[in-house]
Design a protein around this nucleic acid. Structure first.
Lengths: 213, 213
DNA sequence: ACGTATTCCTGCGTTATTACAGGAATTATG
DNA sequence: CATAATTCCTGTAATAACGCAGGAATACGT
């Protein structure tokens, strides 16, 4: 049994684009972004993960990671290597089955996001990104703020636009009383309206699609 | 054992966005596009599949398809229902394991494409779409043309742009001797150059990333 | 083969997005 | 608490992408 656990502080890499794949990581506690590096300091956040989520994947041969995983917080992660996973799979059909379903669900989410990124306007992308954060991290019980703290640039990397546009649009949303913002603390005042922005151009997809992603 | 096979002709739906999920489809012969419907007649092609590929996914409860699958050709597909799949999974760890790996691979491809669609220019997206077609369908041994016939609109749906831009860019590529086109028959004359277009703005991702997608 | 319907090409005006830059606000540091 | 460093906001100019429209090429049906 080869399982090792580690803490990572904010900004630290859990694995890097180009590293060899030796096994899977399970997030015990914390928040992680999965990013592919771009040009001009531009990154794309492929997905966000938190407690209980799996990151990375089991590797074949000399396979390399196509993305990096970076801690957003103090994060505690356990690693299980390829052969241990393989043994677990062969001895526990139910476990393999569950993991298969996990990947198939993630794939569907990614396919949906493909459309959003390819076709949405900036305003829609940013509304979608906020709802995505709500779905993954939830909001604080006290003040209703999103349980995550991202820079404007990170929001842009998630939404697929630039930091300037995020600033502009958040200001607009605030003027329209859809959100409140106090620096990086964001409060979604009107979930309904955010869903409407997303679905306004698209009556065929349920308004809650993003929430399901 | 509940397995039924069917032929679908060009343009027919294999399943539709919003249908209940009853099981998995296996493509025996043909070509299929997986699309999410957009607004203004705009679709997004989430992925393309051919012989031996799996489409759809096993469903939980009342789950609905978030995308549609449409035949591009005369296509022969076999369907296996949820409970049959479940039994197969529980009795054949190796099979479940293989399927888990398939989904995990597809997920990685989708995550990479997210970045491409979010950050690339038109020209790069279209070069990427051509290389994607090459990877999935290959080229004819006789004349070297891509083994698939898509309209300009469908190419646009794949690349995440408009049909006009695809026309324009294909013409440019032809002038630069990167491709030859005879209506819908496209010949990639210079794979190297297409890869260069993709990687020109991005030295950190291997030039062949798209081909691996 | 002929006429008709569809798809494709391409110029051009419009719109949306990006990039730059300077100042304001926030956070970090001694 | 004061200063420095970073991040954030917002105006403006440049650029890229979109969409219309008319003509050309191609596919389709009889």
């Amino acid at each position: 049994m080869s399982k090792t656990c580690n803490s990572y502080s904010k900004g630290q890499h859990i694995f890097r684009e180009g590293d060899r794949v030796f096994g899977l990581f399970f997030i015990k506690e914390g928040r992680v972004k999965i990013v592919s590096s771009g040009f001009n300091n531009r990154e794309q956040i492929a997905r966000l993960a938190t407690n209980g989520h799996i990151i990375g994947h089991r590797g074949y041969g000399n396979e390399l990671y196509p993305v990096s995983a970076i801690a957003l917080d103090e994060t505690y992660v356990c690693f299980v290597d390829n052969s241990t996973i393989y043994d677990a799979f062969m001895n526990n059909a139910k476990f393999t089955y569950e993991l298969m379903l996990f990947y198939s669900t993630e794939l569907r989410k990614a396919e949906l996001r493909l459309r959003y990124l390819a076709q949405m306007t900036m305003r829609e992308k940013i509304a979608g990104a906020l709802l995505y954060l709500l779905d993954i991290f939830g909001e604080d019980e006290q003040d209703g703020s999103l349980n995550v703290s991202l820079s404007r640039q990170e929001l842009a990397d998630l939404a697929g636009t630039t930091a300037e546009q995020v600033s502009r649009e958040l200001t607009s949303f605030e003027k329209e009383s859809i959100i409140a913002k106090h620096s990086r603390k964001l409060i979604l005042l009107n979930h309904e309206e955010l869903n409407k922005i997303l679905s306004s151009h698209n009556m065929r997809i349920a308004a809650s699609s993003w929430a399901a992603i």
